[in-house]
């Protein structure tokens, strides 16, 4: 399976380019949208919540702290949700190609992965520029984002492909996940800081594997701090299990996959 994917590597690379191009076909601002979207969202949140949250930002006393905190978290979450949401729908979306041409189907989520990563890096570059306006200079801690990206995307890829396969047979999966992802977003400290969470919800937030990953971004971008490595273990384990599980399910399901499309 992996060998045939390797044979298609040039195609995957070309498709990532095509995917970036194709997503913005027929829109005026084209490629700017993928940066404008998260920025606009962050702007809305910071306008609405800046006053409320400002006082609660720990360790830092700057008007820019909250927007920076918000953008860092949103960037991390954006990468996670993009890979996840698109992987869930990809087999249905590309159903007509899968029915007509024989190719390793694993290419499809890999293309998403690659395209999302490139999007993400471009977004980070845009964020860096915005930070400069805030007078907040990027430090070496940005390098910690690399393992962060890796962990987030591995976890999203694993869960996404697993659910994407199930979604071919039970289409409710995608519907359910749109709701669930919103819930998940609000159970991750992105818009708010962990300290404002009532005591009874704390364990839930702590169990959430996205919490330490989003934290990693926030620490690195806002505080120029290294992540607390032990806190990342749950994400590593969950990501690893999800990838293995998705490969197993994908292998078992693939004879029936095209039948159900």
């Amino acid at each position: 399976m992996l060998k045939s994917v390797w044979h298609y590597r040039h195609f995957i690379l070309a498709s990532i380019r095509g995917d970036l191009r194709g997503r913005f076909a027929r829109s005026r601002l084209g490629a700017f949208w993928f940066i404008l979207h998260p920025l606009a969202q962050a702007l809305i949140f910071s306008i609405v919540l800046a006053e409320v949250m400002h006082a609660r930002m720990p360790n830092i006393d700057s008007r820019a702290a909250y927007p920076i905190y918000l953008l860092s978290g949103m960037a991390a979450w954006g990468l996670f949700s993009e890979i996840m949401n698109r992987s869930i729908g990809i087999f249905i979306e590309q159903g007509s190609a899968m029915k007509k041409i024989s190719f390793p189907k694993l290419c499809l989520p890999l293309i998403i992965w690659g395209s999302a990563l490139i999007n993400h890096v471009l977004l980070l570059a845009a964020i860096a520029v915005i930070f400069l306006f805030f007078g907040h200079y990027p430090g070496l801690a940005w390098l910690y984002l690399i393992p962060g990206m890796l962990l987030i995307s591995v976890m999203a890829f694993g869960i996404g492909v697993f659910l994407g396969v199930l979604n071919v047979f039970v289409r409710d999966v995608a519907q359910f996940m749109t709701v669930f992802m919103q819930l998940w977003f609000w159970f991750t400290p992105i818009v708010y800081v962990k300290s404002v969470v009532p005591e009874k919800f704390r364990p839930l937030i702590e169990l959430n594997p996205m919490t330490p990953l989003v934290n990693l971004y926030q620490d690195a971008l806002l505080l120029n701090q290294a992540p607390s490595w032990p806190s990342l273990w749950p994400a590593v384990v969950i990501g690893g299990v999800a990838v293995v599980l998705s490969f197993v399910v994908f292998r078992r399901a693939s004879p029936e996959l095209v039948d159900a499309l």
């Binding site: 195609f11 070309a14 498709s15 095509g18 076909a25």
Partner: peptide, 18 residues
């Protein structure tokens, strides 16, 4: 959404052409 030419690249790639 793709043009004929882009689709040739896309579908041709799926068929295993570089």
């Amino acid at each position: 959404e793709f043009t004929g030419r882009q689709n040739i690249y896309q579908a041709g790639g799926l068929m295993g052409f570089s």
